[in-house]
């Protein structure tokens, strides 16, 4: 099968959906001739023109609001927020408006738009590096997607664009350069289906976004130490595939949850609580462990940033403490 990058996978999804449905359009900062701050939209403007690949002023609230408003009239906007950190500026439109329109208007109206947000630490200090998925995860009415591989990025973005709800699509900047197999022929991936990225019987490592790659590498090292780790990628956080998580945990009896975002209030805490609430609790042999970013802003110094991001070593350490 052919191999492409995460960046190309996202662009292919955008292109195919724009070809399929004339209501799909892109709106964001520098998405046109510049091709997106991370080169994701690339040359799409050449194919679809500036009406459908819309460069905006630096106005995140207006970008999000324009996406909400246009979606109410039958369009399918895919908005790009240049760095996920900037979603805070757009948060009224996402958290108070888009998320609640269907509910507070008694189902009369829905807002089918996608918000794409590059997240994750990548040498840029405290305001261009955050993984803020927990903020969005907390808001009923939003769906939250957090893919890792090129295959998942493409298939899930296509599903997101076709979904009738607001979908928060969190991309990891380091995922843009990751390579992976993606078929030529069309496919979509349903929401709410976790993917077992590696099967194992001794411990379940639940990892999100770019942490999936770290977990897979850690699993290889663990295998050399005689520990057979299962790596489970939830892929979508809302909806969350608890069925697969419960099944895996019931098999292994041990869980390590890995995400890049700070631990306090992170999605990992909720996943841990939901495991405890489930029948998997009775299969747990050890406490649920989390390997996450610390409760600090993301620091700039390469040394400190490396300390912030969960490393393979830290994952291995956590697993070894559970398995020894």
């Amino acid at each position: 099968m052919r191999v492409i990058t995460g960046r190309e996978a996202v662009r292919e999804a955008l292109r195919e959906e724009m070809q399929r449905d004339e209501n799909v359009f892109i709106i964001g900062e520098d998405v046109g001739v510049y091709g997106g701050a991370f080169g994701v939209t690339g040359n799409l403007i050449e194919e679809f023109g500036e009406e459908r690949v819309r460069d905006t002023p630096i106005s995140e609230a207006a970008i999000a609001g324009a996406a909400v408003g246009a979606s109410l009239l039958g369009m399918r906007p895919v908005a790009e927020i240049m760095f996920m950190d900037f979603v805070t500026i757009a948060s009224d439109q996402l958290m108070n408006q888009g998320a609640k329109i269907h509910y507070m208007f008694g189902g009369q109206q829905n807002a089918p738009f996608v918000m794409r947000m590059p997240a994750g630490a990548a040498e840029a200090g405290a305001q261009h590096t955050q993984s803020l998925e927990a903020l969005l995860y907390h808001i009923p009415g939003l769906k939250v997607v957090m893919p890792s591989t090129p295959y998942d990025l493409k298939g899930l973005l296509k599903t997101a664009i076709r979904d009738d709800n607001p979908v928060m699509f969190v991309e990891h900047k380091k995922g843009y350069g990751e390579k992976g197999e993606v078929p030529e022929e069309e496919y979509t991936i349903p929401f709410g289906k976790a993917d077992i990225k590696r099967e194992g019987k001794d411990v379940t490592i639940i990892a999100t976004s770019h942490m999936v790659f770290k977990a897979l590498n850690a699993a290889e090292t663990l295998a050399e130490k005689g520990v057979d780790a299962e790596v489970l990628d939830p892929r979508t956080l809302v909806p969350l595939d608890m069925e697969s998580i419960v099944k895996s945990v019931s098999k292994t009896g041990k869980v390590v949850i890995v995400h890049e975002a700070p631990r306090r209030g992170g999605v990992g805490g909720d996943i841990a609580a939901r495991i405890s609430d489930s029948e998997a609790f009775y299969y747990l042999e050890k406490p649920i462990k989390r390997v996450t970013g610390p409760n600090t802003p993301v620091p700039f110094s390469p040394v400190l940033e490396a300390e912030f991001i969960p490393s393979e070593e830290k994952i291995i350490d956590a697993v070894m403490k559970l398995t020894k």
């Binding site: 609230a61 207006a62 999000a64 609001g65 324009a66 996406a67 909400v68 408003g69 246009a70 979606s71 109410l72 009239l73 369009m75 906007p77 439109q93 408006q97």
Partner: peptide
Amino acid sequence: PIAVGAAL
């Protein structure tokens, strides 16, 4: 912003 999106 929503009104502007609708106008768009």
